[in-house]
Structure formats: structure tokens, C-alpha cells
Write a protein that binds this DNA or RNA. Structure first.
Length: 677
DNA sequence: TTGCCTCGAGATCA
DNA sequence: CTCGAGGCAA
């Protein structure tokens, strides 16, 4: 290693610090104090020193922002604290409902403070700082794991490479939105136009595209920004008491915080904040697609906790979806994995809400009837929740004389088996089962999908070919595929075939919940698969479970229990599972031990009467967190009854049966003793 | 559902 | 070099 003289080392350090300071002034505060030329001169000086003495290059050096060598691929990274999405509200009423739910949960009598902020239209990211230095940037991915885009985030000038504090926390994960301001988007497209290249259709896609560049030099050339909005993992930090103070702290540490963040005293303030933002939306420097409201007090946030994939303490109020008029050209019927026959509208392409829409689902027969829609109609489409296009209504005045009724087929369009519609259900289903190639294809696609077995390289088109050529009838056939069978399929060369076989092999090593989800049992999605896996621990126990056993599982009711039970009664299904295991599919059983270790495992509790400091829903969740089951009525098997004010017959019965009882204060003390309050 | 990036396949040209 | 599949994000 080359020895560096102390004077040069000092100079490099000073330059680094000075440049970072100016960078912050320019990109975060929007208030530069030196001319650009001077900044460039300092930068060149630092670059010269660093190229002479590479050992002086630090992770937080501003020279690291220009982009380095292209990557071969993005590596996966796990989010220790999951990155959740937000529940949506589409009207004032839904927002008021949210406030009611929160107030009821917390049993608050007064009003509740909310932090309001614009929902920037970009890409969510996680930034990890160790001892104050940026060490990793990652995309949200599915919330549990994303991709490592460190090289790309480093190039974003409003992201501090080092926190502006002398006592940084040991570990800090900052979350926020990376977006492209409208000006940057216009600039980018103007350049693309002069070069005769393809234009980006909207700023969000341009931002997402810029972040997916393997060559960070390209990312560096785009004027991306990041606004921080929350924390993830933290170690060695005393958290502030409120969300707004957290943002203030992040601002001091050098992050860009959206200037329109406001704290309101109550939900009415949220409503007026929304109206204000709707008014100024068009004049903002960047696209926003709604408003995010968060309960400002972090202690209350913690008490509210989370539902499956979203916090109970926050909600996104969406702006009204944009609507456009277009023509319904045709309706086709698709057959899904469960045989559901879905009408799909083929539309005259129309630009709405930032994208061109040409397809939209019509869901089912009832929806078609409700809309009173015919082929040839002029219709109003909108993008609901910003993703799924929706047909809102028909413009009857424009109906042509030759408009055609939408007739549901009485036989499956694929396998021609009769369709059936069960009383009380809205879905029409193909009765063909495994005879139906559409159902088989969809089942295989589902099996291969990321949240299931995650077989990379096995996409829709390939599955279609494999089933059509009769190379694969059912999922177990996948593992018998030979390289010679694959080569010669469309867009399948030696390389692709090898890759597919390799990823089929990799996919054999899986987890119980993934496998369970992959089986495609009706009503068993990701969350239910996880609950089942957790509850039973092994496939053998799940297979031999009764309907009653299944009802014990969180979020499994009679209908879901029925489908699961039926699935494992059918020998065909059991055979498939057997052959998959023979083919080498395996997973570690889950020890349901952590359940047993919980303090209230195996107990059944009952709540009665109203408590002063906590809603019924919260009390129930707390008990479940401790491993207890919460039942509605008292019996000899009841472990304990918690009673509040105006407790009636249940308390009486408990006392008669000699079941132990707790009053509110005792209950709260019990929770506190178990670290829940 | 769409738009974007990346990769491999296959066509085209040298 | 161009095209389309696949993967990703909202």
C-alpha cells in the first residue's frame, strides 16, 4: 500500500466534507452558496487525489456519486423489517371510517393528531446506514426481500452518503420515495427526442427504469431525487415520540423531506389538507398520486400495529382516478386456474392516468348486467387504485344500432365442458377440471410463480407451449423435462433450456408455506398458506387434519376449511404431492414451537363489557399475540374472562363456573408484564 | 394492467 | 441488430 502523506490525507478529508456540504445545500436545501464552477473545481481536485491514492477513497466520498462499473445483476436483499404497503381511501367517508376505526381501537375520547404528506409517485426504497455511512440501498420488492441497488442510489444527490451528525446510530434504515421531478422528466424526454430515441411515458416509469439500470452511470445522468418518509431497522437510536419529529431528525441529518408535510390536530384537518393539495397539485414540481395520513404519535402507532400487509395507523387517500371515453371492441372469455370464466373487454386503446389502456376485466356476469354493457358501446374507463383499469359506465346515447349483447358461453371456450354457476356465487366456472387445458396451464403458471415455487424462466408463453405440445400435463411433469425436449420450442435455445432446467432444480428446495401456496388450493393464498404452515408445521399433520382442526387456524373459516379438507381428501391431489416429493421437492418442517412458548398458549380467553383504555379489537389481538384463543362465550374450558364496564351474563357465568376473571387494570398489568404495552 | 430493462434467440450482414 | 419473453414495480 502506498503511503499517503498526512497533509494530502487531511486535504482529501476536508474536500470530501466540503463537497458533501455544498451538495446538501444545492440538492436538498435548494440554496447553493458557491458557483457551480467552484464546486466542479473542488470535485476535480478530490478526484485527482483519490486516483493518485486510491486508499483515500471512502464510501461517503462525493466522487462515488458519478457511477462505477456496470453490475452483472442485482443481488437480492432481505428486509429485516418488512416494507409494507398502505391501505387506500377513495373518499372523505372512507377516511372518516379510518379515523373511527383508529379511535375505537385506541378507545380515545378526544381527537387524534395526524401527519399529512403528499404521496409521491415514484419507487419506494430502503437505505441502510451503518455508523452514519450509507452502505446499502434496496428496492421494496415483495416487501420481504428486494434488490440491491446501492450503486444506483449512491448517484442520487439528495441522498446523503453520510449522516450529518457526530453521533450517528449504529444502524439506521431510512425509507422513502425515489422519483423524477417533472422538470427532470421533460429534460430527459427532450434529450431522447433529439436523439430519436423512445420517450418515457410518465415520470414514474422513467424513475423506475432509471433505477433498474445495471450501469449506474446512466442512473447518475438522470435527475432523480429522494424524499425520506420513515424509518425501518434502527439500532442505537432513541426514537422521537412522533412521526413529525422523526422527519425533523432526518431533515437535520441531511435528508430531503417533502416541504408540504403538515401535522393536523384532528381528522377534519386531514380533510382540509386534502382539498388544499388537490388545488395546488398541478403546480407541484413532481407528480403525486394522493395523500398519506399517519397517526403522528409513535406510541399509538405501535399499539395499533399491523394487519396482513399494511399498518393500521396509516392510510393513503387517493386522488380521483382520471377517466376517459373509449370503445368496447370485443369481449373475450378467459378461463382461470379454478375454472372461473372471466369476461375481458378489448378496448380501443386510450391514454388514461399515464398509460395506454386496451384491456379491462369485466369480472363476472353480475358486473356485465350491472353496467348493462354491449359490444360496440362507448364506455368510460378509469384506472382504479392506480393500477387496474375499470369500466365505469356506458354512454347510452352513443350506443350504435348494431350493438351486440354479451352472452356468457354455456360451455368452456377451451375444453367445451359445460359451465356451472353455484347458487349464491357470482363466478361462472368451467366444470372440466383437469380435462381443461386452460385450468391446467393456469395451475402450472401458478405453481411456477414467484410467490409459489419461484421457477425462474418458466413464464406464461413457455407453459402454453409445454402443455400444448403435451410435454407437461401436470406440475410433476416439469421435473421430468429433458434438455432435448425443450430445445426446439419457440425462443428456446440451448442456453435458455439449460437455465430453465437449472432453475427447476433450484426450485426443488423450498419452504412449507411456498409449497402449500403452490398447490393452488382454493381460497388458500399467501397469507393463509403461511398460517396453515405455521399452525400444522408439517404436511402430514395438515393432510390428516379434520375440518374442526382447520377452523382453529387464524383466518380460516368454514368455507376455507371445507376447500382445504376437500383438497386433501382427493387421491389425485395426494398422488401429485407424492410424485413431487419423489421428484426431489423438499422443505424443512416448521416447528410450531414458538407458539407453544408463548405465555398464554393453549388457553381460551373471553372478553366482556367495555374497557376504558382499549378497544375490544386491540384487546383481542393482544391476547392472540400472547398465544391465547379468544372465544365469544364462556364455558368450563374457558381459562380466563376479562371484564370491563357493564359486563353482564358472561361475567356471571364465569363466576358460577369458577373461571378466573380479570378487571381492566389487572388485564393491563398482565399485558405490561408481558411487554405488550 | 402497463411500461421499463435485460437477456437470449434468431435474422442479417460482413 | 431486432424482437419478444421474463421479471419487476405501482
Amino acid at each position: 500500500m502506498v503511503d499517503v502523506d498526512p497533509v494530502t490525507r487531511e486535504e482529501a478529508l476536508a474536500l470530501c466534507e466540503e463537497l458533501n456540504r455544498h451538495n446538501h445545500r444545492y440538492y436538498v436545501l435548494d440554496n447553493p452558496t458557491i458557483p457551480d464552477a467552484e464546486y466542479d473545481r473542488l470535485m476535480q481536485r478530490l478526484q485527482r487525489i483519490e486516483s493518485q491514492y486510491p486508499s483515500l477513497k471512502t464510501a461517503d466520498s462525493p466522487t462515488q456519486r458519478v457511477g462505477g462499473e456496470p453490475l452483472a445483476s442485482f443481488k437480492p436483499v432481505a428486509h429485516e423489517v418488512p416494507m409494507l404497503s398502505l391501505d387506500n381511501a377513495f373518499s372523505d367517508d372512507e377516511l372518516l371510517d379510518f379515523n373511527r376505526r383508529v379511535t375505537e381501537w385506541l378507545k380515545l375520547s378526544g381527537s387524534l393528531e395526524y401527519a399529512c404528506e403528499p404521496k409521491l409517485d415514484g419507487v419506494a426504497v430502503s437505505l441502510l446506514y451503518r455508523d452514519g455511512v450509507l452502505i446499502r440501498g434496496a428496492t421494496r420488492g415483495d416487501g420481504a426481500a428486494g434488490e440491491d441497488i446501492t450503486e444506483n442510489v449512491r448517484t442520487i444527490n439528495s441522498i446523503p452518503l453520510k449522516l450529518q451528525t457526530n453521533s450517528p446510530p449504529h444502524l439506521l434504515e431510512v425509507r422513502g420515495e425515489i422519483y423524477l421531478p417533472r422538470a427532470g422528466f421533460e429534460k430527459l424526454n427532450t434529450e431522447a427526442r433529439t436523439l430519436g430515441e423512445k420517450l418515457f411515458v410518465n415520470p414514474r416509469n422513467a424513475a423506475a427504469g432509471s433505477l433498474r439500470q445495471l450501469d449506474s452511470k446512466i442512473t447518475a445522468s438522470r435527475s432523480l431525487e429522494m424524499a425520506a418518509y420513515s424509518l425501518g431497522r434502527i439500532e442505537g437510536l432513541v426514537q422521537p415520540e412522533t412521526h413529525s419529529e422523526t422527519l425533523e431528525l432526518l431533515r437535520r441529518w441531511g435528508f430531503l423531506i417533502n416541504p408540504h408535510v403538515e401535522v393536523t390536530a384532528d381528522i377534519d384537518g386531514c380533510l382540509s389538507y386534502y382539498r388544499k393539495m388537490v388545488d395546488i397539485r398541478d403546480q407541484l414540481p413532481c407528480d403525486i398520486d394522493g395523500i398519506v395520513y399517519k397517526v403522528n404519535n409513535l406510541y399509538l402507532q405501535q399499539r395499533l400495529g399491523f394487519v396482513a400487509r399494511a399498518p393500521r395507523w396509516a392510510i393513503a387517500r387517493k386522488f380521483p382516478a382520471q377517466e376517459e371515453i373509449t370503445l368496447l371492441k370485443e369481449v373475450e372469455f378467459q378461463v382461470g386456474r379454478t375454472g372461473a370464466v372471466t369476461p375481458v373487454a378489448r378496448l380501443e386503446p386510450v391514454f388514461v392516468g399515464g398509460v395506454t389502456v386496451s384491456n379491462a376485466t369485466l369480472h363476472n356476469q353480475d358486473e356485465v348486467a350491472r353496467l348493462g354493457i354491449k359490444v360496440g358501446d362507448t364506455v368510460i374507463v378509469r384506472r382504479a387504485g392506480d393500477v387496474i383499469p375499470q369500466i365505469v359506465s356506458v354512454v347510452l346515447e352513443k350506443r350504435p344500432v348494431n350493438a351486440r349483447d354479451i352472452v356468457f358461453p354455456d360451455h368452456c371456450p377451451i375444453c367445451h365442458s359445460p359451465v356451472e354457476r353455484v347458487e349464491g356465487e357470482v363466478v361462472t366456472r368451467c366444470s372440466g377440471g383437469l380435462i381443461c387445458s386452460a385450468q391446467r396451464k393456469e395451475a402450472i403458471k401458478h405453481y411456477a410463480s414467484r410467490k409459489a415455487m419461484d421457477i425462474e424462466g418458466l413464464g406464461d408463453k413457455l407453459v402454453e407451449q409445454l402443455v400444448d405440445q403435451e410435454l407437461v400435463h401436470s406440475v410433476e411433469d416439469l421435473y421430468r423435462l429433458q434438455i432435448e425436449q425443450l430445445e426446439g420450442l419457440e425462443r428456446m435455445g440451448k442456453k435458455s433450456a439449460q437455465n430453465l432446467l437449472a432453475s427447476l432444480d433450484t426450485s426443488k428446495e423450498t419452504t412449507f408455506p411456498h409449497f402449500l401456496y403452490a398447490l393452488g388450493i382454493r381460497e388458500v393464498g399467501e397469507a393463509t398458506a403461511r398460517s396453515l404452515a405455521q399452525h400444522f408445521g408439517s404436511l402430514a399433520l395438515l393432510c390428516s387434519s379434520t375440518r374442526e382442526d382447520l377452523l382453529e387456524v387464524t383466518d380460516v373459516g368454514p368455507i376455507v376449511a371445507h376447500f382445504i379438507h376437500e383438497f386433501f381428501q382427493q387421491t389425485d391431489n395426494l398422488d401429485v404431492i407424492k410424485r413431487l416429493k419423489e421428484a426431489g421437492v423438499h422443505w424443512p418442517d416448521i416447528m410450531p414451537q414458538d407458539r407453544q412458548l408463548l405465555p398464554l398458549s393453549g388457553q381460551t380467553w373471553v372478553l366482556t363489557g367495555a374497557m376504558d383504555t382499549m378497544g375490544r379489537a386491540e384487546a383481542k389481538e393482544r391476547l392472540q399475540q400472547l398465544g391465547a384463543k379468544v372465544a365469544g362465550s364462556v364455558s368450563a374450558k374457558t381459562s380466563c374472562v376479562v371484564f370491563g364496564a357493564d359486563a353482564g351474563s358472561k361475567l356471571k357465568k364465569a363466576k358460577k363456573l369458577g373461571v378466573s376473571v380479570l378487571n381492566e387494570a389487572e388485564f393491563l398489568a398482565m399485558l405490561t408484564a408481558n411487554g405488550l404495552l
